[in-house]
Design a protein around this nucleic acid. Structure first.
Lengths: 109, 109
DNA sequence: GCCACACATACCTAAATGGATATATGTCTG
DNA sequence: CAGACATATATCCATTTAGGTATGTGTGGC
């Protein structure tokens, strides 16, 4: 597993991925949305691209980036081994509740 | 809020969590399993504990650690927003695109 | 009380890296 | 082709931090 978590550890890179959730975007789009400087965006995109987490489609003088899910899937699979640990916790807390889980502490990353 | 992904970025901490998947373990157990030095194990456990990712139960002169799933759940939820990106290509998605994930559906343990 | 055991912390050093500024590469328009 | 525009890279710097060694704290047995 080419350190997926290391990539996700950086808030700036997560911000980029969050912006890219809304679809393919140019570098400048990402600069505006994330309020990072352009070189920083390019630098982090380069890292994300080298690791296969985003892909690049050149259109004219723009570079359109989009998410490539494969690496993220690996991270998700690693985490899936731990589902029991937070479900145990919920079960204990909910105890008698057989209802499907209501949104408890919903929060965004 | 401590950065979950930052915690998971460190291989040594992931190794500890992987070892703890098999259940509560003493520090020395973890030293043996991970082949780290004892101070390193203690140091990383301290970090994991401060962030609520593991919990400590003292028994005699031993400290038994176990996984606390809440933080990991947050990471998993963040990733769940990207499921659509690795599901693309596996099969055609309906126009009903995956919307913001609700609490992950309960899985058989 | 003393000593061995189990673990935690203090301190230091070396390596990694994010962000900023400056500059280079590449592409479009006229 | 010049010049604007879009993005990439180069370089420097400051911060973070993992890991090692030495030592501190706490517990149990005799």
């Amino acid at each position: 597993m080419a350190d997926v978590f290391q990539l996700l550890a950086e808030p700036s890179r997560r911000h980029l991925l969050e912006a890219l959730r809304e679809g393919e975007q140019s570098v400048n789009d990402l600069v505006v949305r994330t309020r990072m400087t352009q070189p920083s965006v390019s630098k982090q995109l380069r890292i994300l691209r080298d690791s296969g987490m985003v892909s690049l489609r050149p259109v004219g003088r723009q570079h359109l980036y989009s998410i490539q899910g494969r690496s993220l899937r690996e991270a998700s699979e690693w985490l899936s081994y731990y589902e029991q640990f937070w479900q145990e916790g919920l079960d204990r807390m909910d105890e008698a509740l057989q209802r499907p889980p209501r949104a408890r502490t919903r929060r965004k990353a």
